[in-house]
């Protein structure tokens, strides 16, 4: 009896959601349909459909939020960057190259984070010509920017949370969402910043 009622209410909610899909604004309609017509699979839960403050602002303002909100969000994202406890920002560039090559991770077929997929979007090392072009070339990154601590910190924080600098960047927030570990982020930072890395030779 109880169950029957619950089922009826659930069905009612679904019908309401579907009706809302057609009567309200396209955005409300889209949200209601997505809520109804997706299901959790593996690690990809329904919570992923919910916008956080950054996503909400980028969706609402078509990737260019008003300056004040933009600055506020960037500040908040930057404040969330966790710096390595040992103070060292550079790991092993060879391990970093593997992480940069590996585009897997965080999908419903994965167990969690795996790689950074940096080559999907960036030119990086000189030997890989099958790089994507969504982001700028990072070839010679350290050589061009300098090897100082400030640039090391910039590279690390950018990888940790790209939105700390560019709120609606198309680059994922690898540290913020736990897609890369601290050690992995150090390795990738070394790939960009170690003078011995092929990126800078």
């Amino acid at each position: 009896m109880r169950l029957g009622l619950a089922a009826m209410m659930a069905a009612g909610a679904a019908v309401l959601a579907a009706c809302a899909a057609l009567q309200s604004s396209p955005r409300d309609g889209a949200l209601a349909l997505m809520q109804r017509d997706f299901h959790a699979e593996g690690i990809a839960g329904m919570d992923r459909l919910k916008e956080d403050d950054v996503q909400a602002a980028c969706n609402k303002y078509k990737d260019s939020p008003p300056a004040e909100l933009d600055a506020k969000l960037r500040g908040k994202q930057y404040a969330g960057v966790k710096w390595p406890a040992d103070g060292k920002l550079l790991g092993d560039w060879k391990a970093g190259e593997k992480i940069a090559q590996n585009g897997r991770g965080m999908t419903w077929r994965d167990k969690g984070g795996v790689g950074g997929g940096c080559y999907n979007c960036h030119q990086i090392g000189p030997d890989t010509t099958s790089f994507g072009t969504i982001g700028p070339s990072l070839y010679q990154f350290g050589k061009l920017r300098g090897y100082g601590t400030d640039i090391q910190r910039y590279a690390y924080a950018k990888i940790y949370n790209a939105k700390a600098y560019n709120v609606c960047s198309q680059m994922p927030r690898f540290g913020h969402v736990g897609a890369l570990t601290e050690a992995q982020m150090k390795d990738v930072t070394a790939l960009l910043m170690d003078p011995a890395s092929p990126v800078n030779r």
Partner: peptide, 20 residues
């Protein structure tokens, strides 16, 4: 017409682990 507008919203909706 509503389906087109809703589809457009879905196409531009950024969310998920990578903000895509």
């Amino acid at each position: 017409k509503a389906a087109y507008e809703i589809g457009k919203e879905i196409f531009f909706y950024r969310a998920g682990a990578y903000d895509f």
